[in-house]
Design a protein around this nucleic acid. Structure first.
Lengths: 141, 141
DNA sequence: GCAAATAGTTAGCTTGCCTAAGTTAGGCTG
DNA sequence: CAGCCTAACTTAGGCAAGCTAACTATTTGC
């Protein structure tokens, strides 16, 4: 059953993903927000969100998200609010500072990855580009 | 300068990689070794290695590797040895237990990813397959 | 109106990473 | 060959990020 042709592909893919993970993690190293914080800020770009939503979206337990938001709040990047119709619910939204910090970090990350991508040939970039939808689907599964 | 055509690609790629990271991390969740431990065990498959080698290979500082190896040693999965020609050097190798644990975890991870891959169409799998060398190159950069 | 469910937070533990400081061994130089 | 510098590790201490269990405060449903 595992002697499919997907076996070797799965093996190689898992190895490569590990390397890329390391690459990306270091992209945020030394920056004013960590990789996770950046990713949470990204979820807040549109509208205020509830704690539960955030936790689910990031595949994390509620207490973990509480701590993350605490730190972001201490840093002045997000603000907690309350839901008008349900007093149990806390909402979280970006502050102005948070919004501009998000922009800056995103800029830096994209620039970094773009620089890396430029070391590839056009064919290689195109191959990645073509594979992206499939990788996306894999990530949602 | 960042208004290259690599910009959007970089942006999308970084998002997708985040999702895949989460996917893979949970693959090891609940298993007897963590994702990092698994990856260290993998480095030991061939021959005994030195601490410094391991740290470099995993992009980690030496003290971090010391702690990892301590835990693996406590768990009976690796054994420390000494280098005959240089008494400063500690070597690390798999125990029998470590070897079989490695096999089991690898099996599980590959089977998991392979199962995920089977939800894709042959075309999507092929796209990922084609992109792998480029992703690998990106990871080494 | 009280019990159960829901939303968050707090507390305490683990992993994983880091830097700084120590220890021991090897190597070079005067 | 003595003394010093470097190299290989380990130890100690600190922080981020994750988890579960236990607590508080609401809401809902019988």
């Amino acid at each position: 059953m595992t002697t499919d042709d997907t076996g070797p592909l799965a093996d190689t893919l898992s190895r490569e993903l590990r390397h890329l993970v390391m690459l990306l993690r270091r992209t945020t190293a030394g920056q004013p927000v960590t990789s996770q914080q950046y990713s949470v800020l990204g979820s807040l770009e549109g509208a205020p969100r509830r704690m539960t939503e955030l936790a689910e979206e990031h595949g994390v337990q509620l207490p973990t998200m509480t701590v993350q938001i605490n730190r972001l709040e201490d840093a002045g990047l997000v603000a907690r609010g309350s839901d008008a119709s349900d007093a149990r619910v806390r909402t979280v939204e970006l502050t102005g500072e948070g919004r501009s910090r998000l922009r800056a970090v995103r800029q830096a990350r994209i620039a970094y990855l773009a620089r890396q991508l430029e070391t590839l040939t056009p064919e290689e970039r195109s191959a990645i580009s073509v594979a992206l939808p499939a990788l996306a689907k894999l990530g949602r599964a």
